[in-house]
Amino acid sequence: MRFSESLQKLDRRYIYIVVALAVIIPLIFPLGLKTYTTTPVEDLYRHIDAIAGRDDKAILIDFYHDPSVMPELYPMEIALIRHCFIRKIKLFTISFWPTGAPIIEMALSEVKEDFPDIKANVDYCNFGFKPNALTIPIILGMGDDIAKAVETNSEGSKLEDLPIMKNIKNYDNIQIVMQISGSTSGYLWYTYARPRFGVDVGVGVTAVMAADTYPFLQTGQLLGSMGGLKGAAEYEKLVDIFAMKGLDYSKKKARDIAWGSKQYSLSNIPYKYKKARIGMDAQAVVHVLIILFIVIGNIGYFLDKRAEKRKYVK
């Protein structure tokens, strides 16, 4: 086999081994690469943070995914819940996927460990799993009355009897619906809830779906989005910069810290709150590696082409 040919036909097993090492090594020994915040994530953070401490506003997170996409989406959910608990933002959670309901339980209990004063059904309420067939009736019904449309929380208690529902009636009291999804980028919410009731919609999606959100960000149907692990890493960072220090959001400060030359230390942050940022180190290395593979393949291709051309001229 010619050298140019061998460059184009690397055994895929070697590729797999190199990719595995490129993922594992940065996860064990984080590189501490910087996280740069972007406008779609900053918009989400600012919009959610604007209702800090308010009793008549809440956010709703729709866990629209199963465990397969958890490595990318779970850090987003943790960061959102943590933001709400720190800044006393009323939080509702719901899932129309049977496998989404346990993820809500996991995420809430994981963050709640660090917030002993946060109480279920007072500061947050888990609506739990609602059958997929009821998605549209619930989405539309919440426009009139959330307690009537959802009926019960995950423990079977009537919503209308819960303290958290005081001053919460319908979408007028929902600051934003966040759909965290691995299969759709907020489609049902911006098709049914937004045009009819005017509720703002944001999404957290896997990286492969991030490109799908851009047409809807441009039209304003989506207020903001978190794309893949990078989006989660950005939100984690914004929570650390502002919410943890009790500061109101400022784009200038966010950009100064995120884009400035000084590295933001992660050493004092618990692992569960910096998972996405550590994961981004592995992702950065793998991206560079894939680019290298592409370059190697193309060098082989052009060497091969040149050799064939010479052969033809002779």
């Binding site: 346990p102 593979f293 393949g297």
Partner: peptide, 28 residues
């Protein structure tokens, strides 16, 4: 069971994408 098995299946994508990008992306 569910979480590790689901995540394992999805993370296989990284390996396939790396291999497919290397084989398919040629400036033809």
């Amino acid at each position: 069971f569910n979480v590790p098995m689901g995540a394992t299946m999805f993370s296989l994508l990284a390996f396939y994408i790396a291999s497919a990008a290397y084989k398919a992306f040629r400036a033809r």
